[in-house]
Simulated assay, not measured.
Amino acid sequence: MYAFARSLALLVVAIVALFTGSVAFVAAIAIAMVIVQVADAVIGVRIRDRLKTVGPAATALVDLAALVWMLAS
């Protein structure tokens, strides 16, 4: 549940960032989200829980790809 609460807070901030129109703000939030998800994946590896590893890792990759795409556009 701690990961859900943290991710929910980041999601709310990310949605607010989209309405501000600031690319730098959106990028900063995206970077924070990727860091959190990578940390969750590392924790999943350490506790040997495949679901807690693959889910956050996949989400981090998708978020990172979206960030790169946004910055390249």
Rank of each mutant, 00 (worst) to 15 (best):
M1T: 01
M1W: 05
M1L: 01
Y2A: 07
Y2I: 05
F4M: 05
F4I: 04
F4E: 12
A5N: 07
R6K: 14
S7I: 03
S7R: 12
L8I: 04
L8W: 03
L8G: 03
A9G: 01
A9T: 08
L11A: 04
L11C: 10
L11K: 08
L11N: 05
V12A: 07
A14K: 10
A14R: 12
A17D: 02
T20Q: 03
T20D: 02
G21I: 07
G21K: 09
S22L: 01
S22N: 05
A24Y: 03
F25L: 13
F25M: 11
V26C: 05
A27K: 05
A27C: 00
A27T: 03
A28Y: 03
A28T: 07
A28M: 07
I29H: 09
A30R: 11
A30T: 01
I31S: 14
I31L: 11
I31Y: 15
A32Q: 00
A32K: 01
M33G: 04
M33F: 08
M33A: 11
V34E: 03
V34L: 00
I35L: 04
I35Q: 04
V36A: 13
V36G: 05
V36M: 12
V38R: 12
V38W: 04
A39T: 07
A39V: 02
D40R: 13
V42N: 15
V42H: 12
V42D: 11
V42R: 15
V42M: 15
I43C: 10
G44C: 10
G44L: 13
V45W: 08
V45E: 03
R46W: 14
I47A: 01
R48C: 07
R48H: 13
D49S: 10
R50F: 12
L51T: 04
K52T: 06
T53Q: 10
T53L: 08
V54F: 02
V54E: 13
G55P: 03
A57W: 02
A58L: 13
T59Q: 13
A60P: 07
A60E: 09
L61M: 07
L61C: 06
V62F: 09
D63P: 00
D63N: 15
D63L: 14
L64S: 15
L64I: 06
L64T: 13
A65Y: 12
A65E: 07
A65T: 10
A66S: 14
L67G: 08
L67A: 13
L67N: 09
V68S: 10
V68C: 04
V68F: 09
W69D: 09
M70C: 03
M70G: 02
L71H: 05
A72R: 11
A72Y: 04
S73Q: 15
S73P: 08
